[in-house]
Design a protein around this nucleic acid. Structure first.
Lengths: 166, 166
DNA sequence: ACCTTGCGTCGCATGAAGCAACCCACAGCC
DNA sequence: GGCTGTGGGTTGCTTCATGCGACGCAAGGT
């Protein structure tokens, strides 16, 4: 919870930032979108400390952005999955990614490439498929490691798809 | 500057968040987009302290998101204006606004309404005009106070347009 | 018993933000 | 000249958030 919230603000942006604006939260949501779902994977993938991770996950579950779901019994183990509400943040993350690609480019190219599942196209500035024109949402796309990630010798995210040739 | 940056992250989202992810920054950019440009207006509009405001404005100018521009001489006074790079963040802000409207709605309706300048339509989930279909960017739209703002008895932002009937 | 995995919790140190006061430059007014 | 107001900071201290590293518990496997 942000210290001294934006409570003087009658503003939907401020309301949203009260939920996702804390240090590490958007990066965490990004990691979940990329396929990391388990506590240790999320920690490794973002570099956040365990105590902050615990705090953020709890908050996001309380706000209905993430859902805590058992993936095994004996012992019970949980993973974190985006809800519909959480998936609604894909556009925010994707626009941040595009802005970063444009203004802070990796020398070797984009670290990640977003691909339209149905046709292999990519989201344009309006999150329409640049190949078939479909209006894209979180469920329509997947992320692949891009040249910028390979050039750094970095493995893909746990749960992140294996790149295919398109 | 974020303490302990996301420098283990080869990721454009992380690069973007290093610039705009600090407390108050996106809210500040929002305020500039709404028309507040002067130091005291920005402070009043966001509720941020002067020292943090100074720090954030300096950072955003250094990163080329904002430009410090004189608006008078004798004495020289400056205002802060979004650059092209800064305007590129409109989509991020607008998606946060829409997400907030959807999930944290004001009882009296949206605090702000975004209007396509040319035809009076509104941006949809893909930032296309819902009336004429045009692909919208920051320059194509203006924000008006909405019912949620009026219901709270809050004045518009300094520099914010007067609402018109559409 | 020991080790590993999963998932936390805790104490302390460091850094960021909040709060209030203060500062400087300049202009205008009496 | 002195005072007041505006614009735009800076500073010192307090409070809060994050970073760091260690510790803890539960469960399963060897």
């Amino acid at each position: 919870m942000l210290h001294r919230e934006y409570d003087t603000q009658v503003c939907s942006v401020a309301r949203s930032l009260e939920v996702v604006g804390e240090r590490w939260t958007l990066l965490l949501i990004r990691s979940v979108m990329l396929g990391a779902r388990r506590f240790d994977d999320l920690q490794a993938h973002t570099g956040v400390t365990r105590s902050v991770l615990t705090n953020r996950l709890r908050r996001l579950v309380d706000e209905g952005v993430l859902e805590r779901r058992p993936y095994q019994e004996r012992p019970t183990r949980h993973e974190y999955v985006l809800t519909e509400k959480g998936l609604g943040l894909w556009s925010v993350i994707e626009h941040l990614r595009q802005w970063g690609d444009e203004h802070y480019p990796e020398p070797a190219g984009p670290p990640r490439v977003i691909v339209h599942r149905d046709c292999g196209g990519h989201p344009d500035a309006h999150l329409l498929c640049d190949r078939c024109g479909a209006a894209l949402t979180a469920r329509d796309v997947r992320a692949e490691p891009g040249p910028g990630l390979a050039a750094r010798g970095i493995a893909r995210t746990p749960g992140e798809p294996v790149p295919t040739s398109t």
